Simulated scan of single mutants.
Amino acid sequence: MKGKDFLALNVGFNLLGGIIAGLLVGYAFDKWLMESLFGLKTFPFGMLFFFFVGIISGFRNAYRDLKRIE
Rank of each mutant, 00 (worst) to 15 (best):
M1Q: 05
M1Y: 08
K2N: 04
G3H: 06
G3Y: 03
G3F: 06
K4I: 07
K4N: 01
D5C: 10
D5V: 03
F6S: 12
F6D: 05
L7E: 09
A8G: 04
A8D: 01
A8H: 00
L9V: 10
L9I: 08
N10H: 14
N10V: 14
N10C: 15
V11N: 00
V11Y: 00
V11L: 03
G12I: 06
G12C: 13
G12F: 03
G12H: 04
F13H: 01
F13Y: 12
F13Q: 02
L15A: 07
L15R: 05
L15S: 09
L15T: 03
L15P: 12
L15I: 07
L16H: 11
G17D: 03
G17I: 13
G17N: 02
G18P: 05
G18F: 11
I19F: 15
I19Y: 12
I19E: 08
I19K: 10
I20F: 01
I20P: 09
I20K: 02
A21E: 04
A21Y: 01
A21I: 00
G22R: 07
G22F: 04
G22Q: 03
L23H: 05
L23S: 10
L23T: 08
L23W: 12
L23Q: 01
L24E: 03
L24S: 10
L24M: 15
L24Q: 07
V25C: 15
G26M: 13
G26C: 06
G26V: 14
Y27L: 13
Y27S: 02
Y27G: 10
A28W: 09
F29N: 12
F29C: 05
D30V: 13
D30A: 15
D30W: 06
K31R: 15
K31G: 00
K31S: 14
K31L: 15
K31H: 14
W32H: 15
W32K: 15
W32I: 11
M34Y: 13
M34T: 06
M34Q: 11
E35H: 05
E35A: 04
F38E: 11
F38Y: 12
G39W: 12
G39S: 08
L40S: 07
K41Q: 14
K41H: 15
K41N: 14
K41Y: 15
T42A: 12
T42Q: 05
T42P: 06
F43C: 00
P44Q: 04
F45D: 12
F45P: 01
F45R: 11
G46F: 01
G46M: 08
G46T: 04
G46C: 12
M47C: 01
L48D: 13
L48G: 07
F49L: 06
F49W: 01
F49T: 11
F50C: 09
F50Y: 08
F51R: 11
F51Y: 14
F52E: 11
F52T: 07
V53W: 08
V53R: 04
V53D: 03
V53L: 02
V53Y: 07
G54N: 12
I55D: 08
I55F: 00
S57F: 10
S57K: 01
F59Y: 05
R60Y: 13
R60H: 02
N61E: 07
N61C: 05
N61R: 02
A62R: 05
A62W: 01
Y63W: 07
R64L: 09
R64F: 11
R64S: 01
R64H: 07
D65Y: 01
L66H: 00
L66R: 00
L66N: 09
K67N: 07
R68G: 08
R68L: 14
I69D: 08
I69A: 00
I69H: 09
I69C: 09
E70S: 02
